[in-house]
């Protein structure tokens, strides 16, 4: 059976021959040189000044472990450590962090051995889809380093900048408590 609709057949191949593709256009003339130290490796980049630290990691350095959930500082998926402190990398410009020590999720495991927080997240099922997970883990590592979370309530409050839509919060809390006890 054919309807008028299925009689018409448009092929993208006929309409868009690949030969007509545009040549690579000019790059931006507004870039600046940016030197970043990420996970103990130095990188020299040419970036537009408006490039965020998050996009630099993901798109320019191929470090896609740091996630983009909102790009507005509202979800915590992009959390990294800058000089040991938690920073939402979508709200900071790469150019503003030259010379600083940046740690991402890729820099946590050493010699193929997971950081205790990573192991604890696996053990306590502190994630489902895994998309908020690098941000949660970086935030948890930062939180313990800050040394201010003593009670469950404080941990929960101070981890509330990291949204997990899958709702793995109980596992996340257990993981943090376990690591905190071991390192205390």
């Amino acid at each position: 059976m054919s309807t008028p609709d299925s009689n018409r057949h448009f092929s993208i191949l006929d309409q868009m021959p690949i030969a007509e593709a545009p040549n690579a256009s000019l790059g931006s003339d507004r870039t600046i040189a940016v030197k970043l130290k990420v996970n103990e490796t130095e990188h020299e980049l040419q970036l537009e000044p408006c490039v965020t630290l998050l996009d630099t990691l993901r798109e320019y350095l191929g470090l896609t472990g740091t996630k983009k959930g909102c790009d507005h500082g509202q979800c915590g998926a992009c959390t990294v450590l800058v000089e040991g402190e938690r920073v939402v990398s979508c709200l900071s410009l790469a150019a503003a962090h030259q010379g600083e020590e940046i740690t991402t999720i890729e820099g946590l495991a050493k010699d193929n051995k997971l950081h205790p927080m990573q192991s604890a997240f696996i053990k306590h099922d502190g994630f489902q889809c895994g998309y908020c997970t690098p941000g949660q883990i970086m935030s948890a590592v930062g939180l313990i380093a800050e040394g201010q979370a003593q009670t469950d309530g404080e941990i929960k409050e101070l981890m509330s900048g990291n949204i997990c839509r899958c709702g793995a919060y109980l596992g996340i809390l257990s993981a943090i408590k376990e690591v905190k006890e071991v390192t205390a």
């Binding site: 890729e106 946590l108 696996i122 895994g130 883990i137």
Partner: peptide
């Protein structure tokens, strides 16, 4: 797939 997810490799 836990290891891939906690290391950012997924």
């Amino acid at each position: 797939d836990g290891r891939l997810k906690v290391t950012g490799e997924a």
